[in-house]
Design a protein around this nucleic acid. Structure first.
Lengths: 334, 334
DNA sequence: AATAATTATGTTACTGGTAACTTATTAATG
DNA sequence: CATTAATAAGTTACCAGTAACATAATTATT
């Protein structure tokens, strides 16, 4: 009953058992065809007896390559990123890359910390969900020489490359749609979050200003959630009882507003129009179906990963900014 | 304009600049007080000039410790795990441990692959969300000697330690509550997923059998989602038009059922009672408020991480099974 | 059978941080 | 001032793979 101080099986341990050098065993691991069939069988059985787990550390140390990609999300509770991750993995999985997910609660400082940590593990590339970073983050990225792809937005000039859609334009189009439909007192509801929220607000403002309307902006210091949306409606109606439409920064907030409307007996869209962003399942199945900007989330992840992997392989950046577009779904809430 | 072939700054590079050995620089990194003040200043300025990123690989190689914890979730789109992750991080973050999240789409084989990969990076501990694993997974865990904590359920004997609640009991209690309220044709709705779903079904069956009722079980081969819940209700009503209550494996499915009821004009709970599991925001804000089992998700993550870290530090397992309980919230849907 | 070609295996060196030890320098004490 | 104590910095070795090269064993070819 020895303490489990027994260190992990190494190639040398296997080599000792079969009376070869670890180099032969190493070859067997990479490509069994490089080893004589009789040796192959011996090595095989030794491995299954000792239970070898490949150790990536030596290679990371000597080659500086980990075959891992760092993926940073602001929050894993934001449903937007499920699909993005699936898109990323549709590429990295068959390519044999391991994904390291980290999240930073919408804090640039935490993002910096996470990136530092991931670089310490020698990730071969980074996918970031943000387009604004600390000076130190930029320095680390540049000095590490690691390829970086920023996802979600295409408005800000990227560090190296960005894949996403135009958040400002999406919001502007949605606002214009409401204006065309005759809404006059359109509010924008933002939350604590990322630059994208601010960009969406700008799009809203651009449309509002262009049509000579008055902008009504409500921003919460809290992270977006259904609860936030349901709670903020009260204060909006208190300040501006005449509001007839609410453009929400995302579907969570919009759903909160919808639920709150139902409780208060406010008719949607007759008394209040509501719009969201991203086209999540919940809003699409709710009645009235939530008007939302349908975004190419899976594709954003897929294209970002494709680009990143090809750059890891040394291909130069061709399109610094890849815009995958968006689509507006009217639903029944406007 | 040299190619970015320039390899990363090492402690030796810094040492060369300031004319010391890398050992002194290493000491400075760990504890600047071990270095003379004048040297400290030189090193500091050299670092800020060269931009050093600590490299974890040498330590992982020589000490076999990475200061990283592997966390496996079946799916990152399952909202249950947001809170669990927050709980985990509330402990690992201040302790200076990096989290590596991986997910396996409810596949035991993918779980095995992910665990192998994480062990290749020498994670110091693992948090698993499942209680059934492949034989190879168990072998890898045992031969790696890494501490493992399984979370969410306490019904199955753990590999080493489990932290969670009793899924079977939770579902049984909920079913009994419905029986007490007079429901007679209670259906169970399951989805593709984990053992926990099966355990919940067993709890349901236990209660149903005990009270001499007939069990009506509907299982989908698809992963649980709001859409699944909204689609499955049709087929249930077709087969069993007299169903008066639906116990759903989780809140997503339950929400789908609720939305579908609304569209069909089925009154909840008068014509159909609906229950979920976990007490998510959405169901709690919906009207009628969804009856659900409120589970200690944050605490599960917190306690699991506490236990794991103390075991990494060599403390022996005291409670192999830590049951954190649950609470039933009646809501307005039963 | 002798030589060339192929296949199989061994040797050496390297990666970068740090524990453990030794040596050098400075400060403290009788 | 000499000796001891404390502080600062240097030396060496190690971790586990594998690239690059060297050597040995086997097979093919003339």
């Amino acid at each position: 009953m020895s303490k489990n101080k027994a260190k992990r099986t190494t190639l040398q341990d296997i080599a000792d058992v079969v009376g070869m050098t670890k180099m032969t065993v190493s070859r067997y691991m990479k490509n069994p065809n490089l080893v004589k069939i009789s040796s192959r069988i011996e090595i095989e059985s030794a491995i299954s007896k000792l239970g070898y787990i490949p150790n990536r550390a030596p290679n990371i140390l000597s080659k500086g390559k980990s075959h891992a990609i760092g993926v940073l999300f602001p929050s894993i509770s934001n449903h937007v990123f499920d699909e993005v991750l699936r898109g990323i993995e549709s590429i990295t999985e068959p390519a044999g890359y391991q994904i390291m997910i980290a999240h930073y609660s919408y804090s640039k400082e935490l993002e910096e910390k996470r990136i530092g940590s991931l670089l310490g593990y020698h990730v071969d590339g980074l996918i970031l969900s943000e387009s604004v970073h600390t000076a130190n983050t930029l320095r680390m990225i540049s000095s590490s020489g690691v390829p970086v792809t920023e996802i979600m937005d295409t408005c800000t000039p990227p560090i190296q490359q960005a894949v996403g859609f135009n958040n400002m334009q999406a919001s502007q189009k949605m606002t214009e749609k409401l204006i065309q439909k005759g809404y006059k007192n359109i509010a924008y509801i933002g939350a604590k979050g990322d630059v994208r929220d601010i960009l969406r607000q700008r799009g809203y403002e651009a449309a509002i200003t262009e049509h000579g309307l008055k902008s009504l902006i409500f921003r919460s210091p809290d992270v977006s959630s259904i609860r936030l949306g349901s709670e903020i409606l009260d204060s909006i109606l208190r300040v501006h009882p005449k509001v007839d439409a609410a453009i929400c920064t995302n579907d969570d907030v919009a759903m909160g507003v919808l639920l709150s409307c139902k409780k208060k007996g406010i008719l949607v869209p007759d008394e209040l129009a509501v719009t969201g962003m991203h086209g999540h399942e919940m809003g699409q199945l709710y009645s009235p179906k939530l008007a939302s900007v349908i975004t190419p989330r899976f594709n954003i992840g897929k294209v970002a990963a494709e680009q990143l992997l090809s750059r890891i392989d040394g291909v130069q950046v061709i399109d610094a900014c890849i815009d995958l577009g968006f689509e507006i779904n009217d639903g029944e809430s406007i």
